[in-house]
Design a protein around this nucleic acid. Structure first.
Lengths: 166, 166
DNA sequence: AAAGACCGCTTGTAGTCTACAACCGGTTCT
DNA sequence: AGAACCGGTTGTAGACTACAAGCGGTCTTT
């Protein structure tokens, strides 16, 4: 079940965890889209992931300690997935990778707005976002009086989707 | 030959380019190890890439505009590969991904030193490193009087490999 | 209480990608 | 002249991916 690592290089080990075409997209949807169960991830995915791939990746991400699952109170068969602290710390990776893609690849404007805001916001915004994710996924209350980064990102996305900037 | 993109999301597009287990390692070896031709990448790879995979990835990276090839003057059959500007701008991705791996995965100390120094150095060091890469790969002279980041990283790696810190 | 939608998956099938080893003609080094 | 090196290619087997269909059970709607 467990294979030996190809090397102890940090970049290689990171790629062994998230070096495929789907894992990071699943984390992205949980993180930015607040999709918290299987069906939401399956049907609301921009890219259209297949159910067996999603099941496989969720199992691997669970085994690698990036997500956890718990029964959803009030809905017996629904399972609620949460990000773990290591997954939450992928926020800077998302920000930097999104910034790179936005600069060099044919992104669509509405989907790029989140990357744009995250890049502009810099590490301070990333930290605030991570605190918010810790509240949503780990139950750790965040400092009072701070605005919601997630709501800001989502509002900007919806606004641009409705009325693209001139 | 060219397929449609799954979506215009920056993260998805980035994954379509470097979302596999080998592409980023090849760029890493060119970038940090200064491997400039096929055989060097093949035989000096920490992870042991297969020749057909390396050939395939180099073709794809070339087609995606991340590397270029030119005949090596003075060695008729040797081909010299260079990073392009988009690939050089992957330095922050390498830094952030390496930092994440170092924090959460079982890295080996000697291979982790580069990630450690890059994280400590922050964006200022990344920019200096990128200038250095522009000199090595694009022929753009870098500001005089600046120390070589690459030499610093390599020296630190070799030092730790010889005599691990107590 | 019955009907239908929704829940997290699993199965089957076909196609693509990956890994490993052997090998190629030509070039360079000793 | 012989050996090592150059950038790859070929063959084969196995793993992974994509797509569609379907499973028993649960919840919502009527």
């Amino acid at each position: 079940m467990s294979e030996a690592h190809r090397s102890g290089c940090p970049i290689n080990l990171s790629l062994e965890v998230i070096g495929d075409k789907w894992s990071l997209l699943i984390i992205r949807d949980i993180m930015f889209g607040n999709r918290r169960h299987f069906r939401a991830l399956l049907t609301q995915s921009e890219e259209g992931i297949a159910s067996n791939i999603l099941a496989d990746r969720m199992a691997k991400l669970t085994q690698q300690g990036l997500i956890t699952s718990a029964p959803d109170p009030g809905h017996k068969q629904r399972v609620r997935v949460s990000l773990t602290e290591p997954a939450i710390q992928l926020v800077p990776v998302m920000a930097v990778l999104g910034a790179w893609g936005r600069r060099h690849l044919p992104v669509t404007p509405d989907l790029a707005i989140r990357a744009e805001l995250l890049e502009e916001g810099g590490p301070a915004m990333w930290e605030a976002f991570m605190d918010e994710l810790r509240e949503l996924h780990l139950g750790v209350p965040r400092p009072a009086g701070t605005a919601s980064v997630l709501e800001g990102l989502t509002a900007a996305y919806l606004a641009r989707k409705e009325a693209p900037p001139g």
